[in-house]
Design a protein around this nucleic acid. Structure first.
Lengths: 211, 211, 211, 211
DNA sequence: CATGAATGAGACTTCATTCAT
DNA sequence: TATGAATGAAGTCTCATTCAT
């Protein structure tokens, strides 16, 4: 899709995306477009040429993010000895890289607008498919409780993407790791308390983990 | 503290707080002050007379929220047969009522400004003290893993205050309940994997769970 | 006019005027009405009962000021050995007391509104009459140039009412005194250069020295 | 400094300055920014792009004004036969053109803010230097009293920049001229009465005559 | 195509004035 | 009658988006 861009145009596009990611992750999705442009070293006009409005920019960012996560999942699945270890690693990496920190977007308008992208939807499905594989494998070999599904895991991860407040007495990194571990332990069969409802299947999902 | 207000002024103040809570919980902390005023049925001027700026409003809202949570914690502690049951109930209620949904504030400036309120700080400490009691009791009778502290629990709850996206196949209420249960199961001793770092003590905490 | 006020009402009125004078002289005529009320120790409502709007307040202040100046002029005329000395003293006192510092009002709307007060006009005329007496006497005995009239003097004084900027190397008081002296020396016959136009007579004057 | 602006941007900038000068001279420094923009034929946004806030605008205006005055002083010094004539002409021109009428700024906040501009300070010093030359020359050849310095003259001129009230019986122009002449006559040696304090030297001056 | 200037709607806040208590 | 609460118009400033260069 970006293949037919001229070399410099491509470079611009990438710089814009990088700047947008950095600024939005740190300051929320509301950063002035002009500031994004400045950080990217281009004029606003150029930004708007590439991304007609803020939503388009967010969409591109989200797709990019999901593709990164997919890559992480694939690698974890291929590299780790068993499914549970792979899943754990994937979850830890997602949280650590805070690849979904754009989650801080709350504006429901943006929310709605984002959902409507086909590109986004298919990237997401692709990701979910792989994670579901890991989950099912882990459940088969008894290392994961069987009353949870991809959607549960996805929601959990998405909750943990929020940057934690600085708490005196711990480093943010430690805090992150502790919370993630607690979440993973909750997915083990051992302490499993029955859950209300039933796990959602991948089929009818519309997951927004990216935000 | 608000006792010396005239009857009508008090009524206005309450309406403003109610409107602000509702709008901020749903649309984020950025709702136009004017819209808050309109929903409360007063002029902007009135809003500003009561709360000199957005931060003051948020502060009042936060204190109110925390006081509600404290009340819930007290009741749970008093009513339930054992500490773990009490803690679970408290956590479920917090999440269900989404009493801390203001958490959606991301703007770091607001964040910082809020921390500086003594009133807020003491309300928070009060709440933490009670929760810590429950935790310690539960740990003593072996129903809770011993490598976690109030701060861990607080952070966990705060993560779960984010309103989950609507997921096809489950109701939001069910989703909420599932995620909360998973979190609680992670706090049980049975599946406990060692955590990095160590639990923070109440003493040096500065917790912002309310937002 | 204020005679029929109840004792406490009179006290309120005076406190308001005093507060208004102080605040307006220091911060300009734009001080919030509420601040004036607060300084006077009354509610805004009371202020507005006494003075229907800002202009009314200014008018009262101006009349008061002019009456003070008139008193100064009378005393100088009566006490000093000769007219020129009396006039000099009067001018110096006006500047020193900055009795007209309200002059800082620039808003033309206020300006116009103020002119329309009969009370003000007659107080002003009264003052000008006395000053004119001093001028004419001084001119008769040769201590003052004869090509200037009350209006010239009035305008000069009014110019000098502006609080001078702080200048390093001199005290404001000294600066004031120097400038006033230079002005007075310019009124002496000795260095007199012919002036364009002719001195305006008291008759058709509408002088706003009070501001 | 404004050389690198695009042609249209430069035109806008100039129109804004012109509009601001006109409006501020007549109505005080408080004119709504929006009105300035309207008069300049641009949107508010444009105004704010050029001048981030009111103070920046005033600063630019002041620098411009001072530069004009400096030009006048230079010409007077070069053209007139003797120093006193040059100084008189310069003073008359300043008053007539009311080149410093922005003096009507009273708001102490603006005042303070303005002082902090280096550009302004150096423009001012440049002007004072030339005026000081004229003064010293005039004093050397005996046409000016020797107990006054630049600062005295500067303060005097600054006082006379206030637009005089319309007085029946004289034209404003005549009135201006009369008052200016009186001021000049006061600077002559003949009638000189001793002044309190001593003239401030240029070295430690921080003069704000421009406003 | 890139740039950055211009626009103008809209958010925030202040205050003069009115009015309920 | 005094108070101070409420109102809302008005002013300041910001920023998404369009458009001339």
């Amino acid at each position: 899709m970006t293949g037919q861009l001229r070399a410099d145009a491509k470079r611009n596009r990438d710089q814009i995306l990088a700047a947008a990611r950095e600024l939005m992750v740190n300051q929320g999705a509301g950063v002035p477009m002009e500031e994004i442009a400045r950080h990217a070293g281009v004029g606003v006009g150029t930004l708007y040429r590439r991304f007609p409005d803020r939503v388009a920019l967010l969409r591109a960012l989200s797709v990019h993010t999901i593709e990164n996560m997919t890559e992480l999942a694939r690698t974890a699945l291929r590299t780790e000895p068993d499914a549970w270890t792979g899943l754990s690693r994937f979850v830890r990496e997602c949280v650590a890289l805070r690849l979904g920190a754009l989650r801080s977007i709350v504006d429901p308008e943006l929310h709605t607008a984002l959902r409507q992208s086909d590109e986004l939807r298919s990237a997401r499905t692709e990701l979910l498919r792989i994670v579901e594989q890991m989950i099912e494998a882990a459940q088969r070999d008894g290392s994961m409780r069987t009353d949870v599904g991809v959607v549960d895991v996805a929601m959990l991860v998405s909750l943990h993407l929020k940057r934690p407040f600085d708490v005196p007495g711990t480093t943010p990194v430690d805090m992150d790791a502790r919370l993630t571990q607690l979440m993973l332990d909750g997915l083990r069969p051992c302490a499993a308390t029955p859950l209300p409802g039933s796990p959602t299947t991948l089929a009818d999902v519309n997951w927004d983990a990216d935000r």
